[in-house]
Structures are given as structure tokens and as C-alpha cells.
């Protein structure tokens, strides 16, 4: 098997009888935008939860940069370089926008507890650096006008962007975006598309779960389709669009309806 950046081999997750994810395999190469699509309840978010250590993998393995990362603590996976956003926004609403990003820099912060207690030069230098880094990230995502705001007071689209900014701040190599366009209007989605592309151009690798077909078809290099926990298709956006199994999964084929 050739070396892929992120290699997922036949991972399975079972919830007492229900097989949520059934022997799903896929891979992501460096610098790609890969999407996972599928109808509601297909198991997409469960795949994300296994990738990020929220759930343990029943069987199968996840290899990132040649090292297995399945069943590690979520914190160790973040440290390895995978960072995610959430389908339902999970910002730290009572904290400032910039603080949210600074929380993202947590694992890359090297000063210790006593440095902060005694405000050592090391603490001051690093805090200043982190702040600059956070401002830089917010600028790149177009949120610099909100720096001082509280996260919960921002418009919905901006909150989604802030989730991405926070994930970037962990120095992630792969960004896992869980329905980043959910609830966005067409113009916001358009901006988001441009932004995701710009991330790829900066060297990030992106794994995406999305419902918005326009977004998926426009920016994905490759697409995996999951239904009922199983991978049913894989290919280029143009191939997926014409795939009979995918159309059936989404719209329900005549045959399956007759069998029901």
C-alpha cells in the first residue's frame, strides 16, 4: 500500500447493535481537499469523531504521517496535527474572539505555570507572539474587525469562520471541517469556498463533511460517499454527480422503494 498522508483502513464503529460506520476506508493526500458526503445519519460525523479521538475505533486503523493515531487521546491527536470544527457551533461564547483563537494556540504555548505567575520575560514574549499570531489568523479569515467582540455576539457566518480560525491556531496540518457552510446564505458560502481554497493554497490539507452540494462539487479534489455507514462511492466530483448509487442514496431509487 502506498503511503498516504492520512490513511484510514476499514474503521468500524458499533453502538450496541447499530453499526454506525462499517469498514470505511479512505485516504487523504497532502494538499488535497477531500469531502465526505452522504445522507443524514449516514455516519459522517461518527467518522470525524473517530478521527479526532472522541470515539474509540472498534476495528480498523487510522494512520497519519506514517503513525497510527486511532484510539489516542483527543489532545494527542490535536498535537499530531488534526484539528476540527463542529457541526453545531461550539465556540467559547463568553470569551472574546481573540481569546477563542488564543485557546487554539494552547498546545503550542510553551511557557509554564510559574512563568505566568511571575510574568517572566518568556511569558511576555510568548504572549505577545501568540497574540500577533491570533490577530494574523483572524485577519486572514476576515474577522479582524471582531477581535474585541465576544464570540457569541457575532453573526452566524462569522462564528463559523471563527471555529475554523480556532482550529487553524492549533497549527493543524489537516483541518476537519464538519458542515462549515451549514446555515450560511449563498454569498457567505461563496466566500467560504474562496477561503477554503486559499487555505489549501497555504498548504493545509482539508477533509470536509458537507451537505451543500454546490460547495462540495466546486472545491473538492475527491469525494467519498457514505450511506448507512458504508462507503458506496468514491471519485472525482464529476464522477460522483453521475453515480447511480449516490443518486439512489440521496433520492431513493425506484428499485429500493419497490422492495420497501
Amino acid at each position: 500500500m502506498s503511503e498516504h498522508y492520512l490513511q484510514v483502513n476499514t474503521i468500524t464503529k458499533q453502538f450496541s447493535g447499530l453499526v454506525a460506520v462499517d469498514a470505511v476506508s479512505f485516504h487523504v493526500d497532502k494538499g488535497e481537499i477531500v469531502s465526505i458526503i452522504g445522507p443524514n445519519g449516514a455516519g459522517k460525523t461518527t467518522v470525524f469523531n473517530m478521527l479526532t479521538g472522541v470515539y474509540q475505533v472498534d476495528t480498523g486503523e487510522i494512520i497519519f504521517e506514517g503513525k497510527p493515531i486511532h484510539n489516542l487521546q483527543p489532545q494527542d491527536i490535536v498535537e499530531a496535527g488534526l484539528s476540527r470544527t463542529f457541526q453545531n457551533i461550539r465556540l467559547f461564547g463568553d470569551m472574546r474572539v481573540i481569546e477563542n483563537v488564543l485557546v487554539g494556540t494552547h498546545i503550542k504555548t510553551k511557557y509554564g505555570f510559574f512563568d505566568s505567575l511571575f510574568r517572566t520575560p518568556r511569558f511576555r514574549r510568548e504572549e505577545a507572539e501568540l497574540t500577533l499570531k491570533a490577530v494574523e489568523i483572524l485577519r486572514s479569515i476576515g474577522l479582524d474587525s471582531y477581535i474585541h467582540n465576544y464570540a457569541e455576539s457575532m453573526p452566524y457566518g462569522a462564528q463559523r469562520k471563527l471555529e475554523i480560525a480556532r482550529a487553524i491556531a492549533t497549527d493543524a496540518k489537516i483541518l476537519l471541517l464538519d458542515e462549515p457552510a451549514a446555515g450560511m446564505n449563498p454569498q457567505e458560502t461563496e466566500e467560504l469556498m474562496d477561503f477554503i481554497r486559499s487555505l489549501r493554497d497555504k498548504g493545509y490539507t482539508i477533509l470536509l463533511i458537507e451537505h451543500d452540494m454546490r460547495l462540495v462539487m466546486n472545491i473538492s479534489d475527491r469525494i467519498y460517499v457514505i450511506d448507512h455507514g458504508k462507503r458506496i462511492a468514491h471519485g472525482l466530483p464529476s464522477e460522483i454527480q453521475g453515480d447511480q448509487r449516490v443518486i439512489e442514496a440521496y433520492l431513493g431509487g425506484a428499485k429500493t422503494n419497490a422492495e420497501d
Binding site: 461550539r90 465556540l91 467559547f92
Partner: peptide, 8 residues
């Protein structure tokens, strides 16, 4: 949960 996912 979000805190955990930020590596805290």
C-alpha cells in the same frame, strides 16, 4: 468538549 478538541 470543544476545549478537549483544542488540545486542552
Amino acid at each position: 468538549i470543544a476545549a478537549t478538541m483544542m488540545g486542552i
